[in-house]
Simulated assay, not measured.
Amino acid sequence: MTNTTLSLLARRLALPLAGLVMMAIPGAFAEERPVIMTTKASADEIREFCTNIADAARDQRYLLQKQELEKLQKDVDERIKTLEMRRAEYQDWLKRRNDFLKSTEKDLVDIYRKMKPDAAAAQLAELDPEIASAIVMKLPPRQSSTILGEMPADKAAALTRILVSATDPNTSKDPS
Rank of each mutant, 00 (worst) to 15 (best):
A153L: 05
Q67R: 10
N52A: 15
S42A: 06
E68N: 11
D107T: 09
K155V: 06
L72H: 07
E130N: 09
N98R: 11
E31V: 11
L64I: 14
E68K: 09
E32A: 07
M1N: 04
P169I: 02
P175G: 02
L6P: 04
L127V: 04
M1P: 14
F49E: 09
N170E: 14
T5M: 01
D107G: 06
M85E: 13
E48G: 10
S7C: 03
T146I: 09
A43H: 03
P140H: 12
T167E: 10
S176W: 13
K66Y: 13
T171Y: 00
K71N: 11
L72E: 15
M37N: 07
R86Y: 02
R33N: 09
F29C: 09
R11E: 08
A57H: 12
L64R: 14
L69V: 02
L124C: 10
E48F: 15
Y112G: 04
T38W: 07
G149Y: 00
E126Q: 08
L17F: 04
P117R: 01
S7Q: 12
D77I: 14
N170K: 05
R142S: 09
T167Q: 05
A119W: 01
L9V: 00
A56R: 15
T146F: 05
S103Y: 11
R79C: 06
Q91C: 05
Q60D: 08
M137P: 03
N3D: 14
A88S: 10
E31G: 04
T146G: 01
P140Q: 15
G19C: 09
D174Y: 13
T38V: 05
K106V: 00
A57P: 02
K74H: 12
M115T: 04
N170Q: 00
Y90V: 03
L64K: 11
R58S: 09
A125G: 15
T104W: 00
A88Q: 13
N98C: 00
T82Y: 06
F49K: 07
A166L: 01
S133I: 13
Q67K: 11
R142N: 07
S145N: 12
R61T: 11
T4R: 15
F49G: 10
I147A: 03
T38M: 09
D59Y: 10
R12Y: 14
E84Q: 01
A122N: 14
L20F: 14
T2A: 03
P117A: 08
E70T: 04
L13A: 02
S145L: 05
E84K: 04
A158C: 01
A43T: 12
D59M: 12
T2P: 13
S42G: 07
